[in-house]
Design a binder for these strands. Structure first.
Lengths: 224, 224
DNA sequence: GCCGGGAGTGAGAGAGCTCTCATCTTCGCT
DNA sequence: AGCGAAGATGAGAGCTCTCTCACTCCCGGC
């Protein structure tokens, strides 16, 4: 389990990192909004602990852009602003939970566990990358005015690419994730299915931003 | 949106009911653990607000049985016990959120909105009824040692029956929910698929508890 | 510009899914 | 018990999905 911590006060950031590490979580710390945003978009990150007051882009801005890219990511806001109105505002802006400083570390841990537990049971159902959306339950894909139901394999491939948008995915890795193959059985299925996706999700003048990386695999460009 | 409130103090229960109604929620109030449990199992209920200290079965017991039957239902615990240890325990027992009395009604509303928003995006992925489990994402059904991947239609039918376990479902209603038909086109598909489910999910000596209601439809008995 | 290797495409085989229809079974009533 | 209606079951047609294979296209190096 990997947690991103966005917090500018070094003392608190250190404290959180050490404490979370001790609980067995992998931690990625960012001290300002911009690096925080980048950290939260790392597809391995399962949860975000976010200070609301930050230098550079402030916490609310980070929250907004994280929500746009990963609608389902749990975000626990952490802040010195303790008024009821602040809490209401934080939650309504899309935070999953809200904790005011000073806080009990044990409670933070319990709330992290609660969020991760929920996440595990009700794993992310809707993926979004740029203007692309994919509902994993109905396997409905949307892009602009397009709306198509994808067959299972195509949806699985697209889901993997979307979860790793911006990164190059090797064919081997894709076969493992979307096909469940442990070894490449020397086939070109991935290419075939990449072709299906391009044809189905291409718009006139705006082809699917799926790049081929010769000899390696594919990359879905992040901003549609 | 329907919210179940389990609270024995009449004053608070009334206050919550009126306040939630004013926000446009449908509310179902229960004053003790047993009726509370029944209320929470109503498949129309989208969220549970639960007092931890109750006459009869206490809040923790209600939480446990609700979790067994509806793993994904958001549960906000509400209680006078305000120690950090209590909050940690409540969350670890499976509560989704935890609010201590006295609380700001606006904050409760914000937390309810946060939970419902999340629920809407990441709708329940795993259904459970008795010893039956169904993962809607993978369409994997489990019963005892059995574990089978169901085709889409069978999973859709089973999902509808599970979501309405204990109640009789008419064939017309089932056709609407699992097939997307608006009118019964005079077919026996539902019977055919009910048969598939019975065969696939029957155990020696313990057939699938799916009862036929002559002239009407089917009912999945609630406790396997 | 030509050549080699990798990627994209089209056709099609085989499997599994969905539905219909005919037949068999069961239930409830007399 | 016997009958009629309703549900269960078996067989199978048609379709979609998935994958393979052969072929074409394109990129990059000479």
């Amino acid at each position: 389990m990997k947690i991103a911590v966005v917090e500018d006060e070094v003392a608190i950031a250190d404290f959180l990192e050490r404490g979370l590490n001790a609980e067995g979580y992998e931690v990625r710390v960012a001290a300002d909004g911009l690096t925080g945003e980048r950290a939260a978009l790392d597809p391995d990150v399962d949860l975000l602990v976010l200070d609301r007051m930050l230098p550079g882009a402030d916490g609310d801005a980070v929250l907004a852009s994280v929500r746009a890219a990963r609608p389902g990511l749990p975000v626990i806001m952490l802040t010195a602003r303790s008024e009821v109105a602040d809490r209401v505002e934080g939650l309504d802006r899309g935070a999953t939970d809200y904790l005011t400083k000073p806080f009990a570390f044990d409670e933070l841990l319990a709330r992290i566990r609660a969020r991760l537990r929920e996440q595990a049971g009700a794993s992310e159902t809707v993926l979004a990358v740029g203007d692309l959306r994919l509902n994993l339950l109905t396997r409905e894909a949307n892009r602009g005015s397009l709306s198509i139901r994808l067959p299972e394999r195509e949806a699985g491939l697209l889901a993997h690419l979307m979860r790793n948008a911006g990164r190059v995915c090797t064919r081997k890795e894709i076969l493992a994730s979307a096909w469940g193959y442990d070894h490449d059985p020397g086939t070109n299925v991935v290419q075939v299915y990449a072709g299906y996706l391009r044809r189905k999700l291409g718009l006139p003048g705006a082809p699917l931003p799926l790049e081929t990386v010769r000899g390696v695999g594919y990359r879905l460009r992040a901003e549609g």
